[in-house]
C-alpha cells in the first residue's frame, strides 16, 4: 500500500504562488473578495505564509496546505467521522457527513482546515470552468487539501485500462505539476527507491511543527547552505 507524501524544497521555492492558483482551479475553490479576505475568510486550500526559520535573515515564504499527518488531530475530534485517515495516508473529508461543527479547524495546529462560510459561487459565465472531477461543497462544511485525490482515482483508472500497475508519474497533484521552480516532489514515501523518500531523508528535511508529534507527510527542505 502506497503512503503518499510531498517534499517542498524551500531553497528552490521562489514563492511565485503558481501552486496556489493551480490548486484553486483544480479543486473548484471559489474566488474571494476584499471583504471576505479582510474578515479572515479567504477560501484557499494552499497558501503562502511567512515563517521565521532558523538561519534565515528574513521570514521565509512557506507554501502551506494540509500537512496530511499520520497522527492527524482533526480526525480524532470529528464527531461524525467526516474526516478520516484513509489507508494510503491521505486525510480525507466526506462533505455530506460534515456538520460544520469546526472542531477539526480548532484542533488543526496548522490552521489549514477551512470552514466554508458561504455557498461556493462563480459568475454564470465561469461555471463551465469548474472541474467536473471535484465535487462542489455546500455551505457550512470544512474543506481542505486532499493531495488532489481525484487525480489518484483517475490515474488508477487509466492504469487499470492499460492493464498495468500505477506508475510514479501517473499521480501528481496540481500544485506539483505546475511548480516552475521544480521545488515540489510527490510520491510514495513507502517506496525506498522513490525520489520523495530519498529527499525525506535529507539532512535538510524537517516537518512543520514536528514537535507536536502529528507526523506530517508534507516535508520541507530547509533553505541555506
Amino acid at each position: 500500500m502506497a503512503r503518499w507524501g510531498l517534499v517542498i524544497d524551500l531553497d528552490r521555492c521562489t514563492g511565485c504562488q503558481a501552486c496556489v492558483v493551480a490548486c484553486k482551479h483544480e479543486n473548484n475553490v471559489p474566488f474571494s473578495t476584499p471583504e471576505t479576505a479582510r474578515g479572515g475568510r479567504l477560501m484557499t486550500w494552499l497558501q503562502l505564509v511567512a515563517a521565521d526559520l532558523p538561519g534565515r535573515p528574513t521570514a521565509s515564504a512557506l507554501p502551506l496546505m494540509c500537512q496530511q499527518c499520520d497522527r492527524p488531530p482533526c480526525t480524532d475530534v470529528c464527531p461524525t467521522s467526516a474526516t478520516y485517515l484513509n489507508p494510503e495516508g491521505i486525510v480525507a473529508q466526506i462533505y455530506p457527513r460534515c456538520i460544520g461543527c469546526r472542531y477539526c479547524t480548532n484542533a488543526c495546529p496548522y490552521a489549514v482546515k477551512v470552514f466554508n462560510w458561504t455557498a461556493p459561487d462563480w459568475p454564470d459565465a465561469m461555471a463551465p470552468m469548474r472541474n467536473p472531477d471535484v465535487s462542489l461543497r455546500p455551505k457550512g462544511v470544512v474543506e481542505t487539501c486532499t493531495f488532489c485525490h481525484h487525480r489518484l482515482i483517475a490515474a488508477r483508472e487509466r492504469a487499470r485500462a492499460a492493464g498495468r500497475e500505477i506508475a510514479p508519474d501517473d499521480y501528481v497533484p496540481a500544485c506539483v505539476a505546475t511548480c516552475p521552480a521544480e521545488a515540489m516532489v510527490f510520491g510514495d514515501l513507502s517506496d525506498p527507491h522513490s525520489e520523495v523518500a530519498a529527499l525525506a531523508g535529507s539532512p535538510r528535511a524537517f516537518r512543520w511543527m514536528e514537535e507536536l508529534g502529528t507526523q506530517p507527510k508534507v516535508i520541507y527542505l530547509r533553505e541555506g547552505e
Partner: peptide
C-alpha cells in the same frame, strides 16, 4: 483575474490590498 488579486501582499497575509 480574481485568483491573482488573492496573491497580492502574500506571504504577509494582505490579499486584495
Amino acid at each position: 483575474q480574481p485568483a491573482l488579486f488573492e496573491l497580492l501582499g502574500q506571504p504577509e497575509g494582505k490579499p486584495w490590498r
